[in-house]
Design a protein around this nucleic acid. Structure first.
Length: 555
DNA sequence: CTTAGGG
DNA sequence: CCCTAAG
């Protein structure tokens, strides 16, 4: 069968999530976690983020499961071992001719009729299905409303007749859209932005269940059926963009087939006139915040595709910072979820199989390692437009980052619950302090390109070489074999973490900001920070004219 | 166990 | 990165 439900565990983050791929193509992940009682609860925002990062950076914890497979959830608290059985796995494969990379079975599934359903056998033997009212649904109940009546595994059609299979929202008035929204999500909305409404509705329909706060959607892989692309075209630029990027990304991977789709996509891209270089979905982004999801991160294009933008993008919206301010309740001893090796995994050429040290089951790593051959030129250029001319400083990026995050904190930090543990802003390196008023620092084209190259190298390694290999050294110790170059995003996260939690609280930073980078220890963070400090101090002190510029701005 | 600092 | 001494 397919590759449809993944378990993502991340011990550092305490995240054990079930990702049900409702749509394999484009993939829609929905996150839930198994709580101590073996119930599915929606993943928290942070878990979502952690998992997202995990998916991007480290696939070693992703297991691919099959229908009928039993999951044991070892819980810290309770004696019993709740189990989750995957009853059905929903796929939403395209109606276009099957991609040669994919299993051809299960291709003709109606998007809204095949939806993942998980049954969990609680430790008490209770069985509950997340799609129907029952034991588990307690945890889902509120989030569930739309889902239950919009067809879960029952095959029921959604509540509204407007939408029989195809979604034609274009002709609807705002009011109609609001109605539809209400029908979809079970709540009113005051948003008047048609684009936003349409987008939300589409998402609500494409998502098997909308965890109103924590569902997130990854459009992954190639763009799906035509119908889907139409949806993209009319409704959501960001999705479309994603598709385009993805398709471009995968171009080299499936040389023969992606052509059609690619051209198709491109034509759509042209039609929609994607002048915007931003990945942020404009209408959605703004309005999402005005509605019930204030400052929540909107759907972000899969970062791997746009890593070049990560420096700006990961915090430009501020959503990340705001949303991750503090949420106590989720340190709950994570329910560990192992996959028991029950049956063979469908051989899907998109996946590499590797040995699972935990359960012995095969970990299937998406073969869609989006290894970029050449970086997207425009993106880079756009990025660089942001950088006014000036001189290049080797760690300007970090400074840049801190500067922006500092700005953000000015905006939102005041109403954010101050974490009493952490107001240690003082420990920011002097460089940073002196530069925080400098909105943009710059580096030369060459430097940027170097950066990108490095990054590509790194992501390649990420995909091909997951484990931390150690080699014995002369003095008997073990040494990590591979020097993992620090990526841009890692550095950014580090700087960010230091800004948030204070330098010195390495374990905190590791736990919270580096949850998904299992290979970076807190010591690594510390060392890296030290190096950054050194580097920055080395550049700045004796006035080569640099400091003058900084002081100009800060004064 | 975490942090700091030297190697 | 590693190692280790110090909280």
């Amino acid at each position: 069968m397919g590759t449809l439900v993944d378990i993502v565990g991340n011990e550092e983050a305490g995240v054990d999530c079930i990702i049900s791929h409702k749509a394999a193509d484009p993939v829609v992940y929905q996150l839930a976690r198994v709580d101590g009682d073996g119930r599915l609860v929606p993943a928290t925002e942070d878990e979502v983020m952690a998992v997202e990062d995990l998916l991007e950076e480290d696939k070693s914890n992703v297991r691919t499961l099959d229908t009928g497979q039993i999951l044991e959830c070892s819980t810290n608290g309770s004696e019993g071992q709740p189990q989750l059985e995957i009853l059905e796995i929903g796929t939403e494969k395209p109606n276009i001719p099957p991609h040669p990379m994919m299993d051809s079975e299960e291709v003709d599934v109606h998007p809204k009729e095949r939806i993942p359903s998980l049954v969990c056998h609680g430790s008490d033997g209770s069985v509950c299905q997340s799609g129907s009212p029952g034991e588990c649904s307690k945890t889902f109940s509120e989030l569930d409303r739309s889902k239950t009546n919009s067809s879960f595994d029952t095959g029921m059609k959604p509540d509204f007749s407007l939408l029989n299979g195809e979604i034609h929202l274009d002709n609807l008035s705002v009011k109609d859209l609001q109605e539809t929204f209400k029908a979809t999500f079970g709540r009113e909305t005051s948003v008047k932005d048609k684009q936003w409404l349409k987008r939300r509705i589409i998402m609500g329909l494409t998502n098997s269940c909308d965890f109103s706060t924590t569902s997130f959607v990854i459009i992954d892989n190639r763009v799906g059926r035509k119908q889907k692309t139409e949806t993209c075209e009319s409704v959501d630029c960001s999705v479309l963009f994603d598709c385009v990027v993805t398709s471009a990304m995968e171009n080299h991977e499936s040389p023969s087939t992606s052509h059609d789709k690619k051209s198709e996509i491109h034509s759509i891209a042209n039609e929609t006139n994607m002048e915007s270089s931003t990945f942020q979905d404009k209408s959605g982004g703004k309005d999402a915040e005005t509605e019930e999801r204030p400052a929540k991160r909107i759907r972000k294009p899969t970062k791997r595709y746009i890593e070049e933008l990560s420096e700006g993008e990961s915090r430009d919206s501020g959503a990340k910072i705001v949303s991750s301010v503090k949420h106590p309740a989720y340190d709950q001893p994570s329910a560990k979820v192992w996959a028991r090796p029950v049956q063979n995994f469908g051989l899907d050429r998109r996946y590499l199989t590797r040995k699972d040290s935990l359960g012995g089951s095969g970990i299937q790593i998406p073969y869609v390692s989006r290894i970029r051959r050449s970086r997207p030129r425009e993106n880079l250029m756009n990025l660089m437009k942001l950088q006014p001319s000036g001189e290049g400083i080797s760690i300007s990026l970090e400074k840049n980052d801190v500067a922006s995050s500092t700005q953000l904190d000015k905006e939102c930090g005041n109403n954010a619950p101050k974490n009493s543990l952490s107001p240690r802003w003082i420990e920011e390196p002097p460089v940073v302090a002196s530069e925080r008023s400098t909105p943009y620092t710059e580096r030369t084209t060459i430097q940027l390109e170097e950066e990108v190259k490095l990054k590509n190298v790194e992501s390649y390694r990420n995909n091909s070489d997951e484990e931390v290999v150690t080699v014995p050294t002369a003095n008997g110790g073990m040494r990590r074999k591979h020097h993992r170059p620090w990526t841009l995003s890692e550095v950014v996260k580090l700087v960010d973490g230091v800004a948030k939690y204070g330098a010195g609280r390495w374990s905190e930073i590791k736990r919270l900001a580096f949850a998904s980078y299992s290979y970076r220890t807190s010591v690594d963070l510390k060392d890296k920070w030290r190096n950054l400090l050194r580097a920055s101090l080395a550049e700045l002190p004796t006035g080569n004219g640099y400091s003058a510029q900084w002081t100009d701005f800060s004064g």
